[in-house]
Design a protein around this nucleic acid. Structure first.
Lengths: 227, 227
DNA sequence: AAAATCATGACACAACCATGACAATTCAGG
DNA sequence: CCTGAATTGTCATGGTTGTGTCATGATTTT
């Protein structure tokens, strides 16, 4: 399962270079060029780790970091052009997990990203939603719901985590197919239906719940959370 | 609850200064001056985070780091006198969580320690050798379970201890192979299955028990404890 | 030399998955 | 409202893949 990264960086050149490099390393990379763009993105998407530049056109990384921390328990790695102790302290106080000042070795950035991801998947708490009785156990391919552990098969889990990382967005069957099975696989569209049907059953994601797995007729499916 | 730190550093001056500073910050600090001393300490004690110098009189920090990783899922922060990319890479490959080169700002070290501890909340429970009627005897290659001593062969013991130190995590066959047999060994994946099968039998790690050795189909194995 | 341990291949079995068939639902146009 | 077409829910099924486990010969230890 590909890990999702978000790069928040205003320098277009740097941003695309970094994105390309990290994609080559097998990550699923998204980018934002400003605080506003990043906030917009994060309200509808979940990622595993955010690479955060401090100097941004419409605000700074520290505030964005705090904004994120209030909402999500996602890994954050700060990048900064200045190597000032003041910034370093502000960065960690605002809640970053790691901090690297430019110019940095690209190998080091990669190693630090991997170290953060390694550690966090080792421990139990990558759950973006450990509260309200819903928790994703990436390691075990299982979901803990109301303190009950529900095991999902490999494909079922992949589909679920895809939907979860695109919370509230309607995902078409083909999108899901491409992401879960891969680009060039000849599998019937409708196979997705089966898995979704099973997910609804095994996770009881029906109308009464916090999370719902809704069918958007003619489009696809959407995992959707009330509030 | 005070967090426990272990400082592994041969320079006596540096070691005691560091220890004093961290104690003032409210940590419970222990120290070791050599690889041997650190190993001895860690066989009987558990800590939350280890600060590890690379240059040590009787070995180096990389090997010690791997030695620890085999046994405990504890946080590690490496310190090094040299700022070489080679060392940096070796450090992260051997499994460190963070890496800082001297001279460092003492504020930065403290911030990084706190950031690591903040993220990994449930540490010590994951790295205990004796836990609910289960005890690993590293010297004898044996397991004491419910006050009954069970001898394991060398490889079986290695596999079990790897699984045990990664409690609740699903370990792939390749991970286990790399850790137990070494990186460049041409041994069949499926050999692991045999040992796991035997472990289940000899330790009775089946459904009724406190500890279970579960198969996560398509991923690997997971030793996990029902709280 | 004898015993213990290990790596491998073979086979059976169980879990998983993709598919097609048919029932249920939705929706547009009469 | 009704009706029929399109879309989706769900079940049963056969085929595929992954895993448990045993027997065996090779290797190491005693």
């Amino acid at each position: 399962m590909k890990k999702r990264l978000l790069i928040v960086e205003d320098d277009e050149n740097l941003r695309s270079t970094l994105a390309d490099n990290l994609e080559l390393e097998g990550f699923d990379v998204s980018t934002s060029a400003s605080v506003a763009e990043a906030k917009l993105f994060l309200t509808s998407e979940n990622v595993d780790l955010i690479i955060l530049d401090i100097m941004l056109p419409d605000g700074n990384g520290f505030e964005l970091c705090e904004w994120i921390r209030q909402r999500k328990d996602v890994l954050i790695l700060m990048l900064t052009a200045r190597n000032l102790e003041k910034d370093l302290i502000k960065g960690f106080v605002s809640g970053t997990d790691d901090y690297l000042s430019k110019p940095y070795r690209s190998a080091e950035l990669l190693l630090r990203i991997k170290a953060l991801l390694r550690r966090t998947t080792c421990t139990t708490a990558n759950s973006v939603d450990s509260f309200n009785g819903f928790q994703i156990n990436w390691e075990q391919h299982s979901i803990t719901k109301d303190s009950k552990n529900i095991h999902l098969t490999k494909t079922a889990f992949s589909i679920f985590s895809y939907l979860f990382s695109h919370l509230n967005k309607t995902c078409s069957r083909d999108e899901i197919l491409n992401s879960v099975w891969g680009e060039d696989v000849f599998v019937d569209n409708r196979t997705v239906d089966n898995f979704v049907s099973n997910l609804k059953k095994s996770l009881s994601l029906t109308d009464g719940n916090q999370y719902q797995l809704k069918t958007i007729r003619g489009i696809g499916y959407s995992l959707y959370s009330k509030l």
